[in-house]
């Protein structure tokens, strides 16, 4: 019994990380029609920056803030200086492959090839007792962070002027532009926000997953599966699919370690067969 509860908790917390990643991926697709293949790199670089800040200051909040902001700026610059200059969507996607390799290899140079882990904040190091059962408190914290970010994004998209502008630009970029919305600026902001969220996931995840070279591509794969299942451009889809993939991946690893990735292949294949645009994607 305890195995199932514990693994579900692990799966849910992993799913929340995937949501942090996939939300940005999905939003920038909705707005710009590109899939940023360097999105996993934001996760990895964010985790490494967080690690360095944690080693220097010992302050976990500082690690989170510095990691998210620095990578957010990296995303802003990438979008502003390079992606924006290309008009062809496919060329934009191909450009991000280049950054996937560049950022991955630079991280290897700077932070080395040994797997590392960010120390947890002291308050959440130990387990917590709820009704006879023992839970790792940090996992609960991660789930909490994921829910808070999800609510924040929903509020941003549904209840603010900026969100209304984003929705308008997703629906019809030219019409939105002609009503005075600065679509180019909106794209840059959303792209930077997505990068910062991925980095947030990296720092938060770096304290219970190890950080290692190649993780950028591992999490990219899972984030892609999340948006394929959830539907590109849909936050709700990203949330539901992230939890689903997080749980499936975790149980897959625990139950069939050698065939782990097939537990996410199956749902992806089924979704593609029945609904190629994903659960909540628009046709």
């Amino acid at each position: 019994m305890n195995f199932w509860i514990l693994q579900s908790l692990n799966g849910l917390s992993y799913g929340m990380l995937l949501f942090l990643l996939a939300a940005g991926l999905s939003l920038s697709f909705g707005l710009m029609n590109i899939v940023n293949l360097a999105h996993g790199s934001y996760f990895l670089v964010g985790a490494y920056v967080g690690l360095t800040v944690m080693e220097r200051t010992g302050n976990f909040m500082a690690a989170v803030v510095v990691g998210a902001i620095s990578v957010g700026i990296l995303g802003l610059l990438m979008q502003r200086l390079l992606l924006r200059r290309l008009t062809d969507h496919l060329a934009q996607v191909l450009l991000t492959i280049g950054f996937l390799f560049i950022l991955g290899d630079l991280s290897l140079v700077i932070w080395g090839g040994v797997p590392q882990i960010i120390p947890k904040p002291p308050l959440f190091e130990g387990p917590i007792r709820i009704m006879e059962s023992v839970f790792p408190s940090y996992r609960l914290l991660v789930i909490g962070v994921g829910i808070v970010v999800a609510i924040f994004l929903w509020w941003l998209q549904d209840r603010t002027a900026m969100g209304a502008n984003v929705r308008a630009a997703v629906d019809d970029e030219e019409m939105a532009g002609s009503t005075g919305i600065n679509v180019a600026l909106l794209m840059t902001v959303v792209f930077g926000l997505g990068a910062a969220m991925a980095a947030l996931g990296g720092v938060v995840g770096g304290a219970f997953l190890t950080i290692f070279p190649g993780q950028d591509m591992d999490v990219l794969l899972l984030a892609l599966v999340v948006v394929i299942i959830g539907g590109l451009g849909s936050l709700k889809g990203a949330f539901v699919a992230a939890l689903l993939v997080g749980l499936l991946d975790n149980f897959g690893k625990a139950l069939f370690p050698e065939l782990a990735l097939f537990t996410i292949f199956a749902p992806m294949a089924i979704i593609l067969a029945i609904r190629p645009t994903g659960l909540f994607g628009r046709a």
Binding site: A91, L94, I97, G98, F101, I102, G104
Partner: peptide, 15 residues
């Protein structure tokens, strides 16, 4: 650093 070079070639070719 082959991967780094490969990435840079990607960016250069696309741009």
């Amino acid at each position: 650093r082959w991967l780094l070079i490969l990435g840079i070639i990607y960016v250069l070719v696309i741009m």
